[in-house]
Structures are given as structure tokens and as C-alpha cells.
Design a protein around this nucleic acid. Sequence first.
DNA 1: CTTTAATGTTGACATTGTTAACATTGTGCC
DNA 2: GGCACAATGTTAACAATGTCAACATTAAAG
Lengths: 207, 207
Amino acid sequence: MLTMSTLKKSDAEFHHGDLQAALVTAGLRHVEKHGLNSLGLRQLALVTGVSPTAVYRHFEDLEHLKASVAKAAREVLGKMMVDALKSAPANKTEKGAIARFLAIGGAYIDFGIKKSNLCEIAFICFDSPELEPDSPNPSELLIASLTELNEIGCLSDKNFKIAPMIAWSMVHGFAGLAAQGATGSVQETNASKKEVLLSVLKSLDIK
Amino acid sequence: MLTMSTLKKSDAEFHHGDLQAALVTAGLRHVEKHGLNSLGLRQLALVTGVSPTAVYRHFEDLEHLKASVAKAAREVLGKMMVDALKSAPANKTEKGAIARFLAIGGAYIDFGIKKSNLCEIAFICFDSPELEPDSPNPSELLIASLTELNEIGCLSDKNFKIAPMIAWSMVHGFAGLAAQGATGSVQETNASKKEVLLSVLKSLDIK
DNA sequence: CTTTAATGTTGACATTGTTAACATTGTGCC
DNA sequence: GGCACAATGTTAACAATGTCAACATTAAAG
């Protein structure tokens, strides 16, 4: 099962290799460039170089395909957050932990600002499947950062209980508003981004 | 213009009276019950008792019709907020102003919880038209409540500047998460709702 | 009363999502 | 190695959708 000497691609190219992933990737690219509403099954099959009905070997439905694209979009968000985490200071101090929280929270917001089309599909999915086990989960990354703040000692146990919902709501809400241009000009948005993140810390008695 | 002795409905019923509004209302009802993705032009025309192409006399496009339904959904949210405001204490005191803020913020969140399908379409619209001039605007209601807190004296001018974005992001984010069931059970959600609203006040140094 | 704009209808077309029936490829078993 | 079988892809067709062009009816204006 799943042998086929990985990536041999078969001379006649009758079999695609990994059509499932190819369709999702193509769908992700399309949404990023042209938005969600124009995402169609046939066009997607055409771009991938395959017949429309081949899609049904991998997805029950167009809705299920969309759900997979939504999953991929959330994985992009997760990657942006870990990238931001890597570029943040690694000091195991209070200041470092705060900087890391600002980094991943900021990355979540940047997802709304810079990848607004992906943001549109990422969360507007009803019955969306779980992320890949090895793929970083956005809300879990937020929780991990808050856990770190708690363990270091600058986030009380009482506040820690409500912290995930507070931080997630705020960051998610601002990202969504920014994605649909409700946060004003670019500089206004960037100013608000900072204030929004700091207000989360303030409401949690941090710093 | 627009005479026709309002609501005479014309014997032959060739003309509908106010098809534009009827289509939007039907669209709103459909989305509320069956979700957004199944919202179609033909089905909508059928329900309204009119031919499919009649829709094009009132809407350039299906997208524009959807945008009008989205506008109507935001107006529903606005009405829920003013209703909550009416049911809140009217004391012109600090406590009263806080209670009113919690009421309209809570209504925004309830919109996400109890009208999740409307919440789905309300904000996922690109080029959505402005609300009716007399219809209460959600974000402006939030701002008005914060203005009141500022005028009463329990919200500093400095915090007042950032307050709209803070409050709007938080409430909008939690409503969105609740709408897609990301906030846990019903009681968990209600508990979080309270914490979320209080944390906004806290981050603004209120109370 | 006639002209004209507004509003609605019919018929047709291209495109879409989906299904059924058929074809090809790779895998595992003897 | 040869053969059944599951996996994967193809073609042909269907119903339904959004949209357009041409026509019909009603209301409004002179």
C-alpha cells in the first residue's frame, strides 16, 4: 500500500501520484489569489490536469474538498505562527515569554491582514476536519504561549483559566475585521494591532 | 414615483409590490434555516413566486443579492443590540453605563451564539453595501456606549481612543468562534462570554 | 391617450456538481 | 509469472444553476 516507489510518477502518467494533495494545494492557491466564491470543482480539476470526476475518488463532495482547503489554510496560519516564534527572542525570562506571546499573536493578526482570502476560508467551515497531527494548531500555540507565561509566574492561575478564550477571541476578532478592511488604513491597522495585543496582556494582569 | 397607493397589490399581481425587499427577506430566512451555501437565485425566486430573471431588475448579480442579505443580517444584529439596550437599566450613572455596555456587547455575542447562520453571512461579504441610514449600526452602537462611559468619566480619554477597536475585536472574535462551536459546551460558552466582556472593561481600566 | 420607463416573463445557453458505466494501473496472493 | 482485486482515472450524460436577449405587461408622465 502506497508503495509505487515514491514519486516515480509512472511513465504514462495515468495515475497522478498524489492527486489529493495536489487538489488541495491548487485550491489553496486559487483561494489566495481569486477568493473563495469562485472556487469550483471543474476548474480545479482542469488546473490539476485531471478529469472532473477524478476528484470524487478523493473527496466525497465539493464541500468536503473546500473543508480540506480550509484545513490547509489553518495550517498556513499555524506555520506563520511558528515562524514568528522562531524569529522571536528565546530567553526563558518574563520579557522573553511576553515577546513570544506578542510574536505569535501578531502572526495570527498578520494572517488576517496579509492573507485575507485565506482567512476568509480558514474559519468559515462548518464540519472542517482536524489538522494533521504534526501540524501546529493555532489555538494550541496560543495556549502554549499562555502556559509558558503561567509557568514563568507572570500569569496567575486564576487568569490562566480564562486567558485562552480572551487571547483567542481578541486576536481572532481583530484578524477577521482586518481581513475585511474594517480596521482602517494600513498604519491605523498596525497601530491597532499593537494596542490590541497589549490590551490582552493588560486584562490578564501581565506586566 | 413609488405611488401605486401603497400596498394595493394590484389585482392581477403581475407586479409584486416590493420584490426587492421580499427577495432579501426570503434570503435572510433561508440562510437562517439552511445556511449560506445553499442560497440560490432560482430557489429564491421560486419561493418569492416570481420568475428567476425578475431578480435582475433589482440586483445586478447573485453576489449583490447576497451582499444585500448580508446587510440585512447586520441590521438584525443592530436590532438585537438596541433591544438589549432597552432592557438594560437606564440610570445615568457609572454602574448604569457599564450595565449598558455589557448588554450591547452581550447582544453582539448572542448574535454569534443563537444566530450563527446569520453571523456566517453577516461579515463574510466583501463589497457589502452600507446599512440603511436609520438602521442601528453595530460598531457605532459599541462606540456610542464607550462614548457614554467616557463622558461619565470612568473611561479615560487615552483609553477611549483605543476602546472601539479593543471592544469590537473582542466581541466580534468571540461571536465568530461561538458561531462555529469553538467555544465548547453551552455553559462553557456562557461563562466565557461573561469573562470576555469583563476583560474588555478591565483592559480599559474600568471599575 | 399616447409615450415611456419600470417591472416581470419566456426561452435559450454555457457551466456546474454529480452519477453511472467503463478503462487502466498497481498490489498481493497462489 | 500470472491473476484476481482494489485503487484510481476516464467518458458520457443529467439535472440544476446563473445569466442573457427578446418580448409582454403594467404604472407614470406628458
